[in-house]
Design a protein around this nucleic acid. Structure first.
Length: 939
RNA sequence: GCCCAAGUGGCGGAAUAGGUAGACGCACAGGACUUAAAAUCCUGCGGAUGUAAUAAUCCGUGCCGGUUCAAGUCCGGCCUUGGGCACCA
């Protein structure tokens, strides 16, 4: 091996290219297998070591599958529309096309240097007119099927830059470029009716093999919730408004309603006295964008409209507020507020002093058939000065408790609490801090031998002074009064009712759990689920509401006021409105312009090119204007995997025949950051095309996996500013591509993040050097020297590569090399070739080179991958552990598939085993075939 | 706050379906080769007790408890760290 590593690697890369080794042929007889890695955005900084990790992983899988006889489609392309290229263009006044082309050339060259087995004949970029022609064509199909529409929606607007900003660029409510306060501005935008597909995107997941966490990400993003619409009459108006709620069972506890500041009815129903305030509040909200509303607005704000709504179940008049904690874009933009059972409503009600009505009680204890009902109290008394709680220590009778008691006739709960405290402990100078939610408690009283069901009201008091009165105790009240610290309360107050009361006292807020209804007329006694069902029946019967399902997922805003994107192929005519441009005129190519800055009023730079904008109406032929917005970056990546199936087709985006042949993407790998949105957009796109009869299946992606990030050696994300970036070119030049490939797969669990370690990388180089040196140990023997080792390793490598366990695949090959090195008479050609073959998917260059050098056979890439015989994977003799009472005491050597009798015989011979069973009775003798022996003994 | 994932040596990490915990690699230490270094090879490497060295024993997979002949793995309850979503009614 005198050849320079880089030359050697180049030699094989040229060989593959010349022989088209990795070409995927549509309609080949072999079974198709489609492996896809997310195509990159070709940034100016070149390929990242993180790209290489996932590409190598799937390259190894692709190479193995090919050698196993599959027709593997493993394509690569570029997702090249997007902001950085546009920013670069603005600065340097060159068409983004130029920078993009340069970056793609760099990326492609780097990938080739790593030796990926992509079918480069299928390469394209989303920015190629031949490609985006079909993106535009598909948009027109969406429009024709009513899935694309124009709508006016608020966008982030920087009045200084005169530019529409994405939510990311408007973080914190200020423009990222100039720091000016961002405002919300209404703008007409193209939208896709994605929310129509919410249910189908949810149910479609069943036809995929996505990782559970990926499915969950999708489910959460879609955000389905089942609830009800409730209609409210407005006092003094004929108008009504509708709210969406998932908790219609708590309707009796609704003490106010809230409309989103953008709600249409506000202007109409606001009373004169409140007009000014309401207007001011609405203005203030306009200045806030979505992020501000959520992040910076922990404290609830809002104003009263002066008007009341009528609660349909009890005809109560409840005030209508407006507040930005209600979102205009979700549900109906209006809510009924139940402060007792919703955290947000609770906060708001506290601040605005709105009544809180509990309509659901938590249930503690176990119900019993014969129960006596009564009302009672639990009082928590806190002494701020000493930081102690007042408790009664009942000793063995009932442990430690707070003060409790039964409410007497004619007495309020509060009076009862004060009386009980005074009678049992003597303290009288107390200040009420809060009344806690009622609890429905079931218990058994030993002293009375009776079952009780009590409705307990909790109180939190503060001790003002230790002023006392005389203590009057009944005979059975045998306890000690003790002040204790918090830790004693937590440890010793174990009674469910008292414990819960303490929790309520410490964490005031809404009770959001399940329980039994109270204060709710015909719902009383029902639990949450029963009450929801009954309430929906009632609402529907009285025609003031209905069952309703809502989704968090909104329609897709498809317009961008940017230059570097696919032009939206729509034309506006004064007479005919919006119409798609004729399909035969596609692609609508991005023109050359001098300036890439957006216009003063936030239009795309395309708007400035009048001879491009001005056209004729495809319907009536009169002068008309083109849409100047472009598509979002997500557009091109929503269907590229279909184009890879038929990339040179100039009649269709991909032929049905090709799509039917390749069937689907068998493996789709990408970053976790794309598993929610990108994957959802891609699935939505496919489902639409499928419904239009243009794609054979409604789900075209079978398995989705995601890789972990590669962090810098300091465990932080690689970034230029932190100076921890590893440039793959440097590593390849110094250690070779194979070393980099082996290391990136060996560095850790593929799905988890891993930190870069150049020391570990060197270890992988050492491993390859040892593989090379094994070539000097070849002997003249034939066959495998150790058949079990070979079959075991083949099995391990095949299984591991198919289950993304690349690190253990490498380690099993390291073990093989360790074993080979120990052979006293060297290794056979078969031994060597099988090692090289198994290593080939991971380190393809050096293995081919060695295979050729030592004349071991055809090039590995065109040879059939090794197969294993399960029966031969087990060693002929096994070292079996012998346990006594589950503790390892000895190991014995036994032939494989040893008999029970032999196992017993050998186990009982081991001296250390004898020592541990001597004088004891053997209760059980467990022999697990080929695994372990356990002797259970008793004294 | 809610949802998800993960906690194993000095480090990255192994351990099919509960069956000899720490594979493999890195780092480290000692030795061989060498004038020397690098490279390479050999040996050791969780902790404690113990031994001249073995042997042997005990403790060990975030914490507490449970199931089992046997638990890193299963069950219940916590703690910590990452990630995602975040006023979605």
């Amino acid at each position: 091996m005198n050849m320079n590593v880089l030359d050697m690697e180049k030699k094989w890369q040229d060989y593959w290219e010349k022989n088209k080794t990795f070409q995927a042929i549509t309609n080949d007889k072999k079974e198709p297998y489609y492996i896809l890695v997310e195509f990159p955005y070709p940034s100016g900084s070149g390929l990242h070591v993180g790209h290489i990790r996932s590409y190598t992983a799937h390259d190894a899988l692709a190479r193995m599958k090919r050698m196993q006889g599959y027709n593997v489609l493993f394509p690569m392309g570029f997702d090249a529309f997007g902001a950085p290229a546009e920013q670069y263009a603005i600065k340097n006044h060159v068409h983004p096309r130029e920078a993009t082309k340069r970056n793609i050339d760099t990326f492609r060259a780097q990938m080739k240097k790593v030796g990926f087995s992509f079918d480069w004949d299928r390469e394209f970029s989303t920015t190629d007119p031949d490609y985006y022609k079909w993106t535009q064509w598909q948009f027109i199909q969406f429009y024709k099927h009513g899935m694309a529409y124009k709508d006016t929606i608020p966008v982030n607007w920087c009045p200084n830059c005169k530019m529409v900003l994405s939510n990311e660029d408007a973080a914190g409510g200020v423009c990222e470029r100039c720091g000016t306060q961002v405002v919300q501005k209404e703008k007409s935008q193209w939208m896709l009716r994605m929310s129509d597909y919410a249910e189908s995107l949810l149910s479609g997941l069943e036809q995929t093999n996505f990782a559970e966490k990926v499915k969950l990400g999708q489910i959460n993003w879609i955000g389905k919730s089942i609830g009800a619409h409730v209609n409210f009459q407005i006092d003094g108006f004929t108008d009504t408004f509708t709210v969406f709620t998932t908790r219609c069972d708590t309707l009796f506890g609704a003490t106010y309603c809230v409309l989103a500041p953008e709600h249409k009815l506000i202007d109409k129903i606001t009373t004169k006295e409140h007009k000014k305030e309401v207007e001011a509040y609405k203005e203030a909200c306009k200045l806030k964008n979505d992020l501000e509303r959520t992040e910076l607005n922990k404290e609830k704000t809002g104003v009263f409209t002066g008007t009341y709504a009528i609660n349909p179940v009890n005809e109560e008049k409840i005030p209508i507020y407006i507040s930005d904690y209600v979102l205009a874009t979700y549900g109906t933009g209006a809510i009924m507020a139940v402060p007792a059972h919703d955290e947000r409503d609770y906060e708001f009600a506290q601040k605005f002093n709105i009544p809180i009505i509990q309509v659901l009680e938590e249930v503690t204890g176990t119900p019993h058939e014969k129960e006596t009902k009564k009302n009672s109290i639990v009082a928590v008394v806190y002494d701020e000065k000493n930081q102690k709680y007042l408790t009664l220590n009942w000793g063995e009778m009932g442990g430690r408790l707070f003060i409790g008691g039964t409410i007497k006739e004619g007495e309020t709960a509060l009076e009862c609490a004060k009386r009980e405290i005074a009678e049992e402990t003597g303290y009288t100078d107390l200040e009420l801090v809060s009344i806690l939610p009622k609890i429905n408690h079931h218990y058994y009283a030993y002293n009375k031998d009776k079952y009780f069901n009590i409705e307990s009201t909790g109180f939190l008091f503060k001790l003002n002074s230790s002023k006392m009165q005389e203590v009057k105790l009944d005979e059975d009240e045998n306890f000690k009064v003790e002040w204790v610290k918090e830790d004693v309360v937590l440890k010793e107050i174990t009674d469910e009712l008292h414990h819960k009361t303490y929790e309520y006292a410490m964490h005031p807020g809404a009770m959001v759990g399940d329980g039994v209804h109270i204060n709710s007329s015909w719902l009383d006694g029902l639990n949450k689920e029963e009450a929801i069902t009954k309430m929906i029946e009632w609402l529907e019967e009285h025609q003031c509401g209905e069952k309703k399902i809502n989704y968090k997922m909104r329609d897709w805003i498809f317009s961008r006021q940017r230059f570097w994107g696919e032009p939206i192929p729509m034309i506006y005519c004064e007479d005919c409105g919006w119409n798609p441009m004729p399909e035969e005129e596609l692609p609508l190519v991005l023109p050359d312009v001098a300036e890439y800055e957006p216009t003063d009023n936030g239009e795309s730079p395309l708007a400035k090119i009048t001879d491009w904008v001005n056209t004729t109406c495809p319907k009536c032929g009169k002068p008309a204007k083109r849409e100047t917005d472009t598509m979002p970056q997500w557009a091109g990546s929503s269907w590229y995997f279909l184009r890879f199936m038929d990339p040179h087709n100039d009649k269709e985006f991909a032929s049905m025949e090709a799509m039917k042949y390749w069937q689907r993407v068998d493996w789709y790998n990408g970053g976790m950051e794309h598993t929610a949105r990108h994957l959802l957009y891609a699935r939505f796109w496919v489902q639409m095309l499928h419904n239009f009869g243009l794609v054979p299946k409604s789900e075209m992606i079978w398995t989705r996996v995601s890789h972990g990030m590669i962090l810098g050696s300091n465990n932080e994300k690689m970034s230029k500013s932190k100076g921890n970036v590893i440039n793959p070119d440097d590593i390849i030049n110094e250690y070779g591509a194979d070393t980099l490939r082996v290391y990136e797969l060996f560095m850790g669990d593929y799905e988890h993040d891993a930190s870069w370690s150049t020391e570990s990388l060197k270890g992988c180089r050492r491993f390859l050097d040892r593989v090379i040196r094994l070539g000097t140990k070849l002997n003249q023997k034939t066959g495998y020297t150790d058949e079990a080792l070979v079959h075991k390793t083949i099995k391990k490598v095949i299984n591991d590569l198919q289950t993304l366990k690349f690190n253990t695949a490498v380690s099993s090959l390291m073990i093989m090399v360790n074993e080979y090195e120990k052979y006293p008479d060297g290794i056979s050609k078969e031994d060597y070739r099988v090692l090289l073959h198994l290593l080939n998917p991971i380190a393809p260059h050096i293995t081919e080179e060695l295979n050729e050098n030592y004349k071991l056979g055809k090039p590995l890439c065109v040879s059939i991958f090794p197969t294993f015989d399960d029966a031969k994977t087990i060693d002929t003799t096994l070292e079996i552990g012998v346990q006594v009472n589950g503790k390892l005491r000895a190991t014995v050597n036994l032939p494989k598939d040893f008999s029970q009798d032999l196992a017993k015989e050998e186990a009982l011979k081991a001296p250390n085993v004898i020592k541990h069973i001597e004088g004891k009775e053997i209760v059980k003798f467990i022999v697990v075939p080929n695994k372990i022996i356990n002797i259970v003994v008793k004294n």
